[in-house]
Simulated scan of single mutants.
Amino acid sequence: MIEVTNETRYYISSLSETAQSFAERIRGYWGVENKVHYVRDVTQGEDKSRIRTTPLTQSFALARNFSLNLYRDNMFENMAQAQRLCSFGLDILKRIFRMK
């Protein structure tokens, strides 16, 4: 059974905008966090990576973002499922991402 919770957060700001637009800004931030950072950290194991050499960290981050964009461009909604499917080999990748 799924437990539903409700949290209240309080923010202090000097911005001169409505509460509605401020709330939309905050939700937008968490949308990016959930859509990109969480997937890179959990699904792609970025936090577990032992790569620490400067040019390699940026290269692997670029590759992770590129793969996420490919998955989303090909209408995958579940990134873990897309990653599992695409890890089966080059033939599956060719079928999924056939050149147009």
Score class of each variant (00 low, 15 high):
M1W: 03
I2M: 08
E3L: 11
E3C: 00
E3T: 11
E3D: 03
V4N: 07
T5V: 15
T5L: 15
N6S: 13
E7H: 13
T8F: 10
S13C: 05
S14L: 08
S16P: 09
T18S: 15
T18V: 10
A19E: 15
Q20L: 13
S21K: 10
F22I: 04
F22R: 06
A23W: 03
A23P: 04
E24P: 00
I26E: 04
I26Y: 06
R27T: 11
G28A: 07
Y29L: 14
Y29T: 02
W30T: 05
G31R: 10
E33K: 12
E33V: 14
N34P: 02
V36D: 07
V39G: 03
D41Q: 12
V42Q: 09
T43M: 02
T43G: 00
Q44K: 10
E46L: 12
S49I: 02
I51W: 04
R52I: 08
T53F: 09
T54I: 10
P55Y: 06
P55V: 08
L56H: 03
L56V: 03
T57Y: 02
Q58M: 07
Q58K: 13
S59L: 08
S59T: 07
A61S: 10
A63V: 13
R64S: 04
R64C: 04
F66S: 05
S67R: 06
L70C: 13
Y71D: 10
N74R: 12
N74E: 09
M75P: 00
N78M: 03
M79G: 00
Q81C: 01
Q81R: 11
A82D: 08
A82V: 07
R84W: 10
C86L: 13
C86Q: 06
C86M: 12
G89E: 02
L90R: 05
L93W: 12
L93T: 12
K94W: 06
I96N: 03
M99E: 14
